[in-house]
Amino acid sequence: MSCAAAMAAGCDGGGVDRALASGAMRARALDDAMDAEGGACAALVREVMHAAAADGGGDGLSATSSSAALKAMRARAVSELETRAKTMRALADARVATAQGAYDAVDEAITKLDRDLAVFEEAVRARDRSYDDLAVRNVGALGDADAASPASGGFVGSGAYDAPMANPNEPTYCICQQVSFGEMIACENDDCPIEWYHFACVGLSVKNKVKGKWICPTCKKRESSRR
């Protein structure tokens, strides 16, 4: 598994989505319950006030209400309002806890992603260092295509890195005679017998890309021998 795939597999984005969706549903349910409690309280107050108006005045909730029936209604209303107020406080606390849970889920996912990114970046740096080291080892080990072939043993970099499994029907390139993979560069000599090369096989790296025209070491050596 590649570093990127491992990082993607380790980051449970689906778990965060599920937690947020569940939290949103619970928050809506709590909001609806709080609205219902608030509506019930308002209806109860209106009922007592209407009864007080019919009884001859007052708001029905003050201690000066004269009617015994109104006083009894007032006592029941105050008791019910206190009970509903406690219920609304509990719902509000649950609403805050739900929001905190959603925040914690997102924060945990971000923290884990930061850790995974740090591991991934270090793996990339390690790969680049290894790739650069291989390129340095291959410098000076380049000869003509025959001397550098794996069969002749003239190429010290042969097999030093992991090439993909070759399809027997897929064309091969480079002095290592492997299939195309990774960073490659083309020799701009029209008569080059190989044409395409892997960076590491010709001493190049992703941090040291060629600017301008590039001629492979094999063609350079042949040009020198003709002079």
Results as ranks from 00 to 15, higher is better:
residue 58 G to H: 02
residue 59 D to C: 15
residue 60 G to K: 03
residue 61 L to I: 04
residue 63 A to N: 05
residue 64 T to S: 14
residue 66 S to F: 10
residue 67 S to W: 02
residue 67 S to R: 10
residue 67 S to Y: 01
residue 68 A to E: 11
residue 68 A to C: 05
residue 69 A to N: 10
residue 70 L to F: 11
residue 70 L to P: 03
residue 71 K to M: 14
residue 71 K to C: 14
residue 72 A to Y: 03
residue 74 R to W: 06
residue 76 R to T: 06
residue 77 A to D: 00
residue 78 V to M: 08
residue 78 V to E: 08
residue 79 S to K: 05
residue 80 E to N: 02
residue 80 E to S: 08
residue 81 L to M: 10
residue 82 E to W: 03
residue 82 E to M: 06
residue 82 E to P: 00
residue 83 T to F: 02
residue 83 T to H: 04
residue 84 R to K: 11
residue 86 K to E: 11
residue 87 T to L: 12
residue 88 M to Y: 11
residue 89 R to E: 14
residue 90 A to F: 07
residue 91 L to T: 03
residue 92 A to H: 13
residue 93 D to N: 09
residue 94 A to T: 01
residue 98 T to I: 04
residue 100 Q to K: 09
residue 101 G to F: 05
residue 102 A to S: 12
residue 103 Y to N: 03
residue 104 D to Q: 10
residue 107 D to P: 00
residue 108 E to F: 07
residue 108 E to P: 00
residue 108 E to K: 07
residue 108 E to H: 06
residue 108 E to L: 12
residue 110 I to R: 11
residue 111 T to V: 14
residue 111 T to Y: 10
residue 114 D to S: 13
residue 115 R to V: 14
residue 116 D to H: 14
residue 116 D to G: 11
residue 117 L to C: 15
residue 118 A to V: 14
residue 118 A to F: 11
residue 118 A to I: 12
residue 121 E to C: 11
residue 122 E to A: 15
residue 123 A to S: 11
residue 124 V to L: 15
residue 126 A to C: 10
residue 126 A to V: 13
residue 127 R to W: 15
residue 127 R to V: 06
residue 127 R to D: 13
residue 127 R to S: 12
residue 128 D to Y: 05
residue 129 R to F: 12
residue 130 S to V: 02
residue 131 Y to M: 12
residue 131 Y to C: 10
residue 133 D to Q: 13
residue 135 A to V: 05
residue 136 V to Q: 14
residue 137 R to I: 12
residue 137 R to N: 07
residue 138 N to Y: 07
residue 138 N to H: 03
residue 138 N to C: 15
residue 139 V to H: 08
residue 139 V to I: 15
residue 141 A to F: 03
residue 142 L to C: 14
residue 143 G to T: 06
residue 144 D to S: 07
residue 145 A to S: 12
residue 147 A to D: 12
residue 148 A to I: 02
residue 148 A to R: 05
residue 150 P to Y: 02
residue 150 P to M: 03
residue 151 A to E: 15
residue 153 G to D: 04
residue 154 G to F: 07
residue 156 V to K: 10
residue 157 G to H: 01
residue 157 G to Y: 01
residue 158 S to Q: 04
residue 158 S to I: 02
residue 158 S to V: 06
residue 159 G to I: 08
residue 159 G to L: 09
residue 160 A to Q: 12
residue 160 A to L: 15
residue 161 Y to C: 14
residue 161 Y to T: 11
residue 162 D to N: 05
residue 162 D to R: 09
residue 163 A to R: 01
residue 164 P to A: 08
residue 164 P to Q: 03
residue 165 M to C: 06
residue 166 A to D: 05
residue 166 A to I: 10
residue 166 A to N: 01
residue 166 A to E: 08
residue 167 N to R: 07
residue 167 N to H: 07
residue 167 N to T: 01
residue 167 N to I: 03
residue 167 N to P: 00
residue 168 P to W: 03
residue 170 E to D: 11
residue 171 P to K: 00
residue 172 T to F: 08
residue 173 Y to R: 03
residue 173 Y to D: 00
residue 174 C to W: 02
residue 175 I to G: 11
residue 178 Q to G: 04
residue 178 Q to P: 00
residue 179 V to L: 06
residue 179 V to C: 13
residue 182 G to V: 01
residue 183 E to I: 04
residue 183 E to Y: 12
residue 183 E to V: 06
residue 184 M to H: 02
residue 184 M to S: 05
residue 188 E to L: 11
residue 189 N to W: 02
residue 190 D to E: 13
residue 192 C to W: 10
residue 193 P to S: 03
residue 193 P to T: 05
residue 194 I to Q: 04
residue 196 W to R: 04
residue 196 W to S: 07
residue 197 Y to N: 01
